[in-house]
Simulated scan of single mutants.
Amino acid sequence: MTIDRLGMVKVRHLQTIHSLGSYRNACRVVRQLIPYTNQVYQEKEKVIYLNKKGRDLVGSENEVNGISMLKHYTLRNEVYLHFNQPIDWKNEYTLETTVEPQRNVDIVIQGIKPASKRKVVADACFTRNGYVNIIEIDNTRDMADNRKKVQNYAEILPLVRKNLPGSPLLLFFTTTENRKQKLSTWLSEKGLPHKVMTYAEIN
């Protein structure tokens, strides 16, 4: 179900995804879902997400926690629509690997070599034209945290590349030209294949 898969959706998103015709008709459809959804507003636009009854109906365990993520969800939906609704789109995509330490007798404990896990959670991911498109949604995240995430990608992508179904391409979406420039610079410095766009460029 679209609402469950995307987490939170504007009426306008459902209107586009399901070809519901007029906005008025889309609102009529959404009214029929009232028993199964919670509704909030973002800049005068209605946004809905599944309540417990709705999750039980579709057999979902994906509970939306916190309206503080509202903007994040709706921005991610804009990117989903920008790419024409990829069929293999996955939200909160985890890249994870186990790193074996270098041989060192000093760190062998009872014959077991300690290993560490490295993990990065992308906001979304989909494949197209031989690329694994890794999506990052930047809104109000501190730029220091953005730089740290770029560093995390630089460390983990060489380790997981062989297990991916295509070449990784980082796609960052952000709010301003200034943030775009900084992200582009950091990604280039790390030699990561990427593209950075503002939301204004895709709307």
Rank of each mutant, 00 (worst) to 15 (best):
K113Y: 00
I112D: 06
T97S: 09
E78T: 01
H72K: 00
N84Q: 13
R76P: 03
N84F: 06
P86S: 04
R76F: 03
P86H: 12
P114H: 01
H82S: 08
I109K: 04
R103K: 13
A122G: 04
P86R: 05
I112W: 12
N84M: 08
Q110N: 13
E100C: 08
A122R: 12
V99S: 02
A115L: 02
I112L: 11
Y80N: 02
E78W: 03
D123A: 04
F83C: 11
Y73P: 06
N77A: 02
Q85Y: 09
R118K: 12
A122C: 14
H72T: 12
Q85D: 02
I109G: 00
Y73Q: 04
L95S: 09
T74Y: 08
L75H: 13
P86T: 13
T94R: 15
Y73T: 11
A115P: 03
I112M: 04
T94E: 14
T98H: 11
E100T: 05
V121L: 06
H82C: 07
E96P: 10
N84K: 14
Y93G: 02
V99C: 07
H82E: 11
V105A: 07
V79S: 07
D123E: 12
T94V: 15
V105S: 07
R76G: 14
T94A: 14
E96Y: 09
Q102G: 13
I112E: 05
S116E: 14
N91S: 09
A115Y: 03
T98G: 01
A124Y: 03
P86Y: 00
H72L: 00
N77S: 00
N104M: 11
T94N: 14
F83T: 04
C125W: 11
E78V: 05
C125L: 06
S116W: 05
D106R: 14
Q102M: 15
V99D: 06
K90L: 09
G111D: 13
A124L: 05
L81F: 05
L95A: 07
R103W: 14
V105H: 10
F83E: 04
R103D: 15
V120G: 02
V121Y: 05
T74E: 02
K113T: 10
R76H: 12
N77Y: 05
C125F: 01
K90S: 07
T98M: 00
G111C: 00
W89A: 01
Q102R: 15
R118V: 11
T97E: 01
H82V: 06
R103G: 13
K117Q: 07
E78D: 15
Y93M: 02
K113C: 01
N104D: 12
Q102I: 15
T97P: 01
T94D: 12
Q85F: 06
E100F: 08
A122H: 02
A124S: 01
A124T: 11
K117C: 03
K90D: 08
Q110F: 04
Q110A: 09
E92W: 04
V108H: 07
K113W: 12
Q102P: 13
H72S: 10
S116N: 14
N104W: 03
E78F: 03
Y80G: 08
T94K: 15
I87V: 15
I107Q: 03
P101Y: 12
H82Y: 14
Y73M: 10
R118N: 06
T97I: 02
L75D: 07
V105T: 15
N104L: 10
K90Y: 09
N104S: 05
I107L: 10
